[in-house]
Nucleic acid binder design. Structure first.
Length: 641
RNA sequence: GCCCGUGUAGUUCAGUCGGUAGAACAUCCCGUUGGUAAUGGGAAGGUCGCCGGUUCAAUUCCGGCCGCGGGCUCCA
């Protein structure tokens, strides 16, 4: 049989030849460097026998795909180290993940970061001792006996599952005395493991189920080159620097006051200014896209939530009710039932559709205490919510419209890379099959029409309808879920929404929930991290700081500021302080104010201002009018600076 | 909600092997009128997260609760 090599050459091999033997066949150097291979993109262990034809590529320790293998082996080495160190350790699972790997253990001792040094040092021993890693296979019975002997109850559970899935044989990997039920792939030798770091210890439920016991998980990472490990650590530090929970209070944008209610945001004047800019922009874009705006109450009687089904299915996530005489009122966790009331206020005709109703609706959800995370996961938040109510034949066009609007808005914030996910019908679902199919197809076709790459998340849709989620990539290459476009077959049914068709009969409309930025809080948080607090001029709470050189220039500074303010630009004259210029610049710099105007005797004489950017560039003096023109233009075009 | 960690001035942190605490920055006051990232001096500021227990004495030891952080689960 033939394999196609990366350079296009065909390699004739005998079926069942091992990866490592193929590598040596190509060249001895390559053979020595081999840690695995890919066949049509699938990762193979170096010990695997190749039985299919396809695109074949050898992986050496330096290739990007090698990380997966390195980390998998690193997780075994870590597990072995933990077993060497502590009593009564049972192994659960230890896979490679995106940025590293982890291993889940069950042991009586509770692990903490203080133990990292000794674990790492034992790992280094195992690396130094340089054990060959061998693979062995056992049939189900043998394996069961072996694992029972070792008292590895979690591994036994996994084994039983494999067997019930029809596996006759399972593989183990062994280095020194350490043997682990494992599919691989792995390195050839523990000495190939060079650069690794333990990162965190955390709890994790066995099999991810909160009804199961909690295991102890150690997160760690490993790389082929020290340089890459350092870069990774740096990236983590950079992310810490950008953390909106640190920058928010530092830049006087917002605070939390947990003693007065965890997960509830207090927006300071500067944060509120930024928020207003975002909202104004959002409104303008929606108006242009043919949306109308609605405003609805924050609370509603229990009848409403009973009818919507929230009290049955969402109650845990709602704040407890407030009572008024013998009635219960609930804070809204969603806006939809209210929008439906507006729809129901009169008989709707097919001529009215589509309706596109948007509201920056503030909702409250009683999120479980452990999940709160600054602005990204709060208990009170504002959705940039809208409901699109359409006839069946308008569905696709409406979805396309929503996606276009999304990308239009996002590009203004400098987001141009996305991941799109289409989630299909889950096992437990309401609504008829035909509607599910139509809606899912409409979503799919819209994505295709826009030429977007997307992934299908099978069965991941909500019980009430399929959805599209969009994840944005930020300046640090991290992805954030923002946009969601969801069909709802449940609420129109529950509220018996109808419209009069051209045939004179009542029809059930399609309803689409959509939030483009997701929630303003979350979006704001991600903007802070994306920009590292240095908002583009149009968003900056203070766009210009006027800095007098001495107090004698205060009057001129005020005059300059007034002229700028009259042009609608947000400006702050720093005349209330007698600090020297360097100090004023230092402070404006820390506040990340885009433009600093230095005004001293020289400027006062000529009616000029000296412009300094927050990027530390001194652009020198220019007439005030010229600066105003410059700034206005930058704001207009939504420039970064 | 669960596991681990953690909680000292506005902020970042030190400290007390049980005798009620200290620095830097920020704040306020005084002096300096300074030309592109921190002027000098002084003052004020903390029931050491909350409640309970042990003790002559608790910020320190023990227990409970709350919050925060890293994860897990959850996000109809």
């Amino acid at each position: 049989m033939k394999l196609t090599l990366p350079d296009g050459d065909k390699l004739e091999i005998e079926e069942g030849t091992r990866v490592i033997d193929i590598a040596y066949d190509i060249g001895e150097g390559l053979g020595n460097a081999t840690v695995g291979a890919t066949l049509d993109g699938e990762l193979l262990d170096l010990r695997d026998e190749v039985v299919d034809e396809g695109d074949f590529e050898i992986i050496t320790i330096d290739s990007p795909r090698a990380n997966e293998i390195i980390r998998h082996t690193a997780s075994h080495v870590m597990a072995q180290a933990v077993k060497r160190l502590y009593e009564d350790v049972k192994l659960a699972i230890g896979p490679a993940i995106d940025d590293g790997f982890y291993y889940d253990f069950d042991l009586p001792k509770s692990l903490s970061e203080e133990n990292f040094a000794e674990i790492k040092s034992k790992m280094e021993d195992i690396v130094e001792e340089g054990y060959e890693i061998e693979r062995l296979t056992m049939d189900a019975e043998e394996a069961e006996e072996y694992l029972s002997d070792k008292n590895e109850k979690y591994k036994l559970e996994l084994l039983n599952e494999f067997v019930s899935e029809g596996e006759k044989e399972v593989s183990f990997y062994r280095q020194d005395g350490f043997t682990d039920l494992c599919e691989g792939p792995h390195l050839r030798d523990t000495s190939q493991l060079k650069h690794f770091e333990l990162l965190d210890v955390a709890g994790a439920y066995w099999r991810g189920d909160e009804n199961n016991v909690m295991l102890q998980r150690i997160y760690a990472t490993a790389f082929a080159k020290e340089k890459n490990l350092k870069e990774y650590v740096q990236r983590k530090e950079e992310a810490k620097e950008r953390d909106h929970r640190k920058l928010g209070p530092e830049l006087d944008l917002f605070t939390f006051h947990p003693e007065l209610g965890p997960g509830l945001v207090y927006w300071h004047p500067k944060g509120t200014e930024v928020l207003h800019q975002i909202k104004e922009f959002w409104r303008a874009k929606h108006r242009k896209a043919g949306y109308e705006f609605v405003s609805t109450p924050h609370i509603g009687k229990s009848d409403l939530w009973e009818k919507s089904g929230h009290l049955d299915y969402f109650r845990e996530d709602m704040f407890p009710p407030m009572r008024e005489s013998n009635q219960e009122y609930f804070l809204k966790p969603m806006n939809c039932p209210f929008h439906i009331q507006i729809y129901q206020s009169r008989t709707r005709s097919y001529r009215d559709l589509p309706l596109r109703w948007a509201e920056l609706g503030t909702v409250y959800r009683h999120e479980r205490s452990g999940v709160l995370h600054g602005l990204l996961r709060a208990r009170g938040f504002t959705q940039d919510d809208a409901h699109v109510i359409t006839t069946p034949d308008q569905v696709k066009e409406e979805v396309t419209g929503v996606l276009n609007l999304t990308f239009d808005i996002m590009s203004a914030f400098g987001f141009n890379d996305y991941k799109v996910a289409l989630s299909t019908k889950p096992e437990k679902a309401v609504g008829d099959a035909k509607r599910w199919e139509e809606a899912t197809e409409a979503l799919r076709e819209s994505i295709m029409d826009l030429g977007l790459d997307y992934e299908v998340e099978k069965g991941e849709g909500a019980f009430y309808g399929p959805k599209i989620d969009v994840h944005l990539e930020d300046a640090l290459g991290r992805f954030w879920q923002t946009t969601t476009v969801q069909f709802d077959f449940n609420l129109p049914e529950r509220f018996d929404m109808t419209y009069m068709g051209s045939d004179g009969r009542e029809h059930r409309p399609y309803m689409i929930h959509r939030a483009l930025m997701g929630t303003l809080e979350r979006f704001f948080g991600l903007l802070v991290e994306h920009y590292k607090g240095a908002f583009p001029v149009w968003l900056s709470p203070v766009q210009v700081a006027v800095l007098p050189v001495t107090e004698d220039n205060n009057e001129y500074a005020e005059k300059v500021a007034e002229k700028i303010r009259n042009e609608g630009i947000r400006v702050d004259a720093r005349t209330g302080t007698d600090e020297n210029l360097s100090r004023e610049i230092h402070e404006a710099q820390l506040e990340k104010i885009p433009y600093m105007l230095v005004v001293g005797d020289k400027e006062e004489e000529t009616g000029e201002v000296s412009l300094r950017l927050r990027t530390e560039e001194d652009l020198g003096p220019r007439p005030l009018e010229e600066f105003i023109e410059f700034a206005t233009e930058k704001i207009e075009e939504k420039a970064r600076l």
